[in-house]
Design a protein around this nucleic acid. Structure first.
Length: 567
RNA sequence: CGGGGCGUAGCUCAGCUUGGUAGAGCGCACGGUUCGGGACCGUGAGGUCGGAGGUUCAAAUCCUCUCGCCCCGACCA
């Protein structure tokens, strides 16, 4: 491809709303253009990269036995009402009406549609199992779209859905997808890790997220360097010390703590460590108020707590609700004397003795609290937010926290949707059973953005070859020099004959501009023909990644390019 | 949803406090000199100052409303 005939316009300056590197570089390198908040046009150069990734995804999924189809982006409300998600999904679901005032949604995901499709077609165990996928534009009306393709509203995603007769079948399908995902991200040469994850709003049992490691990532994951345990912080567990404390019990005392609300303030005022305070968080759920007790120096993992309580809504209660429940303003809640609401204690306080907590009275706390004597705690659960330095739950290692970009997420759905939508089959014995489903998402645009996050320098993108829009940048300097032009054109033809994807900078630009642009767009191999070295019959070949220049004879240039390309 | 900020040339931004003929750099066009790391000189095109209403002799500037965009927060007791 000749640049002079291509639609690629690079820029030196970057719009002020581009915060992260991948977003800035994608705009500067002419890959994407914003149309509205979180909505982008994929320009030819950027689209090629997405197409490369899509091809890899197709190759690996096809190899794993999945079948590609294409479902509608617009989905009728009825299906979402049937699954219950019309109400539950929230404002992220873009709802639209047609001319007859019928309600539709622009699909953020396709569980309903695929399940509806399959329930109409498939009736017998003989037709199972199978795995169907599509690569399609989705829409999620995010509150705050940002970071370009990393958190857009309209985005391209590969979503696959497996259907099996039983859990064992699902296990196989799930494992096949997990392997396919590894093959895909390996093929893209990304530094990633598959972590255990919470199943979130999609629901289901087991789940893994594929995270590309990047400091700019929006998700925190923990990893154990010793045993390789890896999990999303929302899911991560930690090993608890089994032993209790054996301090002689102190006397229960009510002490005045005027104006001391936050754990830090109370700890300083009482001259005790925050870990010796139990904080009582009053949460509001659709099942009523809940008091959650946790050690003062730790934080609640609300996802775990929601799962434990089996609720769909969980938020800290309002000032008035707290006052109603505890009889005190916010900051003085405690378990002693608290009644009329469910009370659940975090494992971190199970063995804690002689602690402090709010007295359910303004400006007062208790000290010397001992469960059993002063308060009955009957319900314990794990809803601790794990942080770096916590003990690994699988070995005696210590967990580390990383940031990552979630590029893929696979779920074992089970019968959640097949039951809700009546997607059943008849088994060998003649029994009617719901199909056992899995679903497998992979963000196409986000993965490309993640690849850039992970592969760039101060001058621009450094494409991993599998995702590069083109493989080789051929630049002819000194455009007026007939010999330069002749040699460059010749190399262009030869490379194309070899099947190499060459992007030929034949523009009438100064060398500096061509070099800067070459660095910015970051094609893996660069071949430069300039008058100076051509006097000695040489051209320059280099890799974007290390920029080491190799001067080779014109006749050896193509071979050298091929060598570097496959290095 | 709450708070803050910003909308002025294609892009980055100045001008607004204190109302008085709309600016710079980059980019773009043309001419010339240049030509191995975003050249230089000259000339030029390009803006309903996001939109509507108001105050005023006069509004980019002050007031009200509105739309769009960006950032932060969304309560850890």
């Amino acid at each position: 491809m000749r640049w002079s005939q291509y639609y690629l316009f690079t820029t030196r300056e970057v719009p002020n709303d581009a915060e992260v590197v991948s977003h800035q570089l994608m705009i500067r390198a002419g890959m994407i253009k914003k149309l509205a908040a979180g909505i982008y046009t994929y320009l030819p150069f950027g689209w090629r990269s997405l197409a490369k990734l899509s091809a890899i995804v197709r190759r690996e999924l096809d190899a794993a036995g999945a079948l590609e189809l294409q479902m509608p982006a617009i989905q009728p409300a009825e299906l979402w009402q049937e699954s219950g998600r019309w109400q539950r999904y929230g404002k992220e679901l873009l709802r639209i009406k047609d001319r007859h005032d019928r309600e539709f949604a622009f699909g953020p995901t396709h569980e309903e549609v695929i399940t509806d499709l399959v329930r109409r077609d498939v009736k017998s165990y003989r037709q199972l199992p199978f795995n169907l996928y599509q690569i399609q534009t989705k829409f999620r009306d995010e509150i705050r779209p940002r970071f370009g393709l990393m958190r857009g509203r309209e985005f391209i995603m590969k979503d696959a859905y497996s259907f099996d007769v039983d859990a064992a079948g699902l296990d196989k399908a799930y494992e096949a997808m997990r392997r396919a995902y590894c093959a895909i991200f390996d093929a893209c040469r990304l530094d990633y890790s598959a972590v255990e994850a919470d199943t979130g709003t999609i629901g289901g049992s087991a789940s893994h997220e594929f995270m590309v490691m990047a400091g700019s990532g929006e998700s925190a994951v923990v990893r154990c360097p010793s045993c390789g345990y890896a999990a999303n912080v929302e899911k991560a567990e930690t090993r608890r010390e089994p032993a209790g404390e054996a301090h002689p019990p102190q006397e229960l005392q009510e002490v005045a703590t005027p104006g001391k609300k936050a754990v830090e303030e109370v700890a300083r005022f009482l001259k005790i460590a925050p870990r010796r305070i139990v904080k009582t968080l009053i949460y509001e759920t659709e099942k009523g108020l809940v008091a959650a007790l946790i050690r003062g120096d730790r934080e609640v993992n609300e996802v775990k707590l929601m799962n434990h309580l089996d609720v769909e809504r969980l938020e800290l209660a309002s000032e008035e609700k707290v006052r109603e429940a505890t009889g005190a303003p916010v900051g003085f809640a405690g378990p002693i004397g608290l009644s009329g609401l469910r009370m659940v204690a975090e494992e971190s306080i199970r063995h804690l003795t002689n602690w402090a907590c709010g007295a359910n009275k303004e400006d007062a706390h208790y000290t010397g609290v001992n469960p059993g004597r002063d308060v009955q705690l009957s319900e314990f659960a794990d809803f601790l937010l794990v942080h770096g330095g916590d003990a690994c739950p699988r070995c005696d290692g210590t967990l580390e926290v990383f940031r990552g970009i979630e590029v893929g997420h696979i779920f074992k759905l089970g019968d959640k949707y097949s039951k809700a939508l009546g997607c059943t089959f008849t088994d060998e014995a003649g029994a009617e059973l719901p199909m056992i489903m899995g679903c497998y998402g992979l963000g196409i645009g986000r993965t490309v953005a993640a690849a850039i996050e992970q592969n760039h320098d101060a001058d621009g993108i450094i494409w991993p070859r599998p995702l590069a829009p083109f493989e080789v940048l051929l630049a002819g300097l000194n455009p007026d020099d007939a010999e330069v032009r002749r040699v460059t054109e010749g190399l262009y033809d030869q490379l194309r004959e070899k099947g190499v994807e060459v992007f030929y900078d034949d523009r009438d630009e100064r060398p500096g501009v061509k070099f800067k642009d070459a660095d910015l767009i970051g094609l893996p191999v660069r071949l430069v023909v300039g008058a100076k070295s051509l006097k000695d019959g040489q051209v320059e070949v280099s890799l974007r990644r290390d920029r080491a220049k190799h001067l080779v004879a014109v006749g050896d240039a193509v071979a050298k390019v091929l060598e570097l390309l496959h290095a």
